[in-house]
Simulated scan of single mutants.
Amino acid sequence: MGSSKRSLDNEENLDSSDSDVSITDSEADSNEPNTEEDSNDEEVEEEEEDEVLKAIRRENEKKRNHPPPIICDSFITDISFHPLENILAVANIEGDCILYQYSNEENCVLNTLELHKEACRDIEFSHDGKILFSVAKDKSIMLSDVESGKLIRFYDDSHEVPAYCITVLDDNLFCTGDDDGTVKLWDLRIKNTDKSIFSLKKNADYISDIITNESLQYLICSSGDGSLTTIDLQKRQFFVQSEEHDEELTCLGLFRSETKILSGTSNGKLVFYNWNEFGLYSDIYPTSKTAINSLVPITENIVVTAYEDGHLRATNLFPHKPLGVVGQHNLSAENLDICNNGKFIASTGHDHDIRFWNIEYFEEFEQVTKKYKTKNKRKEEFNLPSSKRTNVADFFNDLT
């Protein structure tokens, strides 16, 4: 979950500098004829310039392997990929949700759902992709039919304070967490009521994210108070609460065949928990000094994290090792999601943009990291193939 759901003041600072042009003595004296040496130098410069242009042309002619960026009119609060079709749902601060049909060539608006009176904070598709779940600052929960855009079900005043996140568990159950640390469980089979079937408040701050495993045994909830709260879904009761960290737990993910829980923090750390050992973390790995706003599992051992400095970084979890920069935004990177076939991820920036990054190369990531293992100076900031920011040295290797 990105920090976009909370109030943030960010300004883009652009540094500009004027380059000085020096004039040599030979240039100042226009009456002197060109020597043979000058002529040779000019020919070499022209040849080098031609090679540079060829290298740039090769870069530009590469076929795009991901959809083009989407620039939105309003601030983006969340995104969610459809589980089966090439559809991306985009929630915004106006309370609307826009459905895009995406492809490598173009992105087309399928529908605009005017859902909530205030900012839509979190969205998620049902497992079959037929329903879009959304929560908003107006405290409501809405279930919308994806094909028709019509409202299926509406929960008014679902929480005493605005809901912050929502997670779909199965065909019948979903859960929500709010700004005050309350978690609620909902059952679609119960008709003619807007009451939850279970409610628990153990946290002193907002619920940032909620996950569960395939067996739906436990519900894991991260919070801004720095702790994890675990709920026994089978018994519908509180299970355990972890020790508190001195920083916010901002997002969650499952790894290593659901044996490891990973949480990002507001200070740029990755906190590890063992499944069934929710009370105490097993390890902490500092990755950056800026906040982690969102994370997405790429493989059982690789995570991509979105940072407040605008970078998307890939990390190998076991052993802990930075793999490089996947992509970047001009301002804070807020939300992440991975598409249904796993070929690329999408990220949102604080300047209303959505960018797509092809991540198929992670299947051969060991070859990528092996190539650069001796280049310690560039190791941590190595830009992976998805990143638009090119390493200058790598670019000019094409000229040799």
Rank of each mutant, 00 (worst) to 15 (best):
E61M: 08
D309K: 09
D122K: 11
L312M: 06
T369S: 11
T24S: 09
D180K: 11
D41G: 13
K201V: 03
K321D: 00
S7F: 10
P322Q: 06
E37D: 15
L280A: 11
F272Y: 14
K269T: 09
G324P: 00
G2K: 11
Q234L: 14
Q101A: 13
A28F: 14
P69T: 03
L110N: 13
V21N: 09
T348G: 03
H245C: 08
G177E: 03
P385A: 05
P67E: 00
V135M: 10
E248W: 13
A346E: 00
L110T: 06
N340A: 14
S263M: 05
K139E: 06
F198W: 06
R6Y: 11
S39L: 14
R189P: 02
N213W: 04
E11T: 07
H311D: 08
P322R: 05
L249G: 12
V303T: 00
E12S: 04
Y100D: 01
R57Y: 03
L113E: 07
T250Y: 06
D180F: 09
L280W: 05
R256H: 10
T182G: 00
S282Y: 11
E105H: 03
V325T: 13
N335F: 07
A393M: 13
A28N: 12
E118Y: 09
N358F: 03
C251S: 15
Q367K: 15
L99M: 08
K269H: 08
G181T: 04
H329P: 03
Q217Y: 07
F81C: 09
